[in-house]
Amino acid sequence: MPTDTALLEVTDLRAWYAESQALQGIGFRVNPGELVTLIGRNGAGKTTTLRSIMGIVKNRKGSIRFEGNELIGKRTYQIARQGIAYCPEERGIFASLSVRENLSLPPTLKSGGMSEDALFETFPNLRARASSRGTQLSGGEQQMLAIARILRNGCRFLLLDEPSEGLAPVVVKEIGAQIRRLKAQGYTILLVEQNLNFARSVADRHVVIEHGTVVDQLTNDELSADLNRVKTYLGV
């Protein structure tokens, strides 16, 4: 994989929360159309990596290049406007907004964003709840809404933080199907996961993170061939 084809290239990323260093020098790349997971234990630095890419963690050093442009030093909204969408772990559904308001909140940043109708087509469950308050939805519906919402503004690179967390197996399956569909539509996705089976069901490649560094990288086939190679890191 030559460098010039990478959509996202993270090099020696270090990040700090207040005084404590959370990332010790993360490096990996994501190629166009790929679905890459960041896997690792709780507190390993997966979420911090996403938040650093997005500029939500501001105290960060190293290099994050997206389509060749450096993101370090840019503000969150500027990063979003480059074409990166972020779906946080806590989903971030706004309680004071209706489902429709939640969905239509992101402005159009790039052409090719999905219309409200197209989104309701893709996520039919949401249509029936369009005028409910965002937080009256079930966990699965909230997750669907959170993913649907970031498809609005036309970004083609998605950062998804643990979409399977806290959901029933049948809902996780549905989310998995949606994510595969997005990949088939050409979205590039960087996914944070702890659920190894879920990660295997959707990803091309895995980046294993521990103590704020990358300790292993492997393709999905390599993972399937040797599950134990990763299980030790996850402490499963």
Partner: peptide, 13 residues
């Protein structure tokens, strides 16, 4: 929305 979470609103661009 920004009242609830300015970070997420900003992440929408």
């Amino acid at each position: 929305a920004a009242n609830e979470s300015p970070e997420i609103v900003e992440s929408f661009g």
